[in-house]
Design a protein around this nucleic acid. Sequence first.
DNA 1: TCCATATAGTCAATCAGGTTGTCTTTTATG
DNA 2: CATAAAAGACAACCTGATTGACTATATGGA
Lengths: 151, 151
Amino acid sequence: MSNGFELPLRLLMAFRVLIDALHEELAERGHPDMRPMHGFVLQAVARGADSAASLGRTLGVSKQAAGKTVETLEGLGYVTRVPDPADSRRKTVVLTDHGADALRRSAEVFDELRARWAAELGAGRLDDLEDALRRMTPGELFRLDVPGWFG
Amino acid sequence: MSNGFELPLRLLMAFRVLIDALHEELAERGHPDMRPMHGFVLQAVARGADSAASLGRTLGVSKQAAGKTVETLEGLGYVTRVPDPADSRRKTVVLTDHGADALRRSAEVFDELRARWAAELGAGRLDDLEDALRRMTPGELFRLDVPGWFG
DNA sequence: TCCATATAGTCAATCAGGTTGTCTTTTATG
DNA sequence: CATAAAAGACAACCTGATTGACTATATGGA
């Protein structure tokens, strides 16, 4: 087995392990409708990408795609859209209580998962792993271009 | 910033960094049409998942989806389908020269990328990283259920 | 001040990749 | 030998993305 093949695969699998565990937990904690994508979007909204267009830029998708996602999220009760009084073109996306709760729970679960990894690997080795990943990936955490990565 | 959030994000970013670099290189080495998905499929075919149904099982998708992907790959010249003389229900998927070349080049590039990481992190730290990931992910490398992970 | 340009949002058509369900043909098994 | 299981194909549909076109609103420079 070529060594080079394993690294990307393990990275993807590790990501999936965490995300699958997250959503399993989230389903049990009041958010069975949450999809992986939604977490990223809510996160981006909470960090200030509060319109379809800026969300699109942050997530690396077209504004139309971002708009559709916001619409879905609105339907699920995670966000609402309110007209921006200062710029009547814009509709500001804001988290609902439900959305804020989803984000809080996600953070909670991610912290638990990280603790589980720390217990399994040892805290030092987990820190090393994160340091290494940080070194090999772009600095800004939220310019992730997450969708389309596969196409 | 909640620590737990960073780990999955860095894992995904690291994966993307490698995959994006791979396809950039691949495009310059005669495979501009290759998509991330395709590499996984060719790899699975090369490892013996040589029919739509077995491919589907290996990749964790329906046989119909696998069939469609094979069709696409056939259109791009990476594989052909030949009737199985021993079982006339089956059509064996076989790599074309072009497909085998794609796989060879991918391995080449992945090895180069891994070497780049080793140079940046130090060989020992990279080994540690892989060990840690191996510890935290399922054993079998190719039961990856890669598609649908996002939906 | 006014016009040119850029931006926000929406609609519509399209695409890729996935799903389920149904069906035929062929193989395997009790 | 009959029935069950498996392979492939077809159809309808879903989701999440794309591009292109269009309207309304802001903004910045002559």
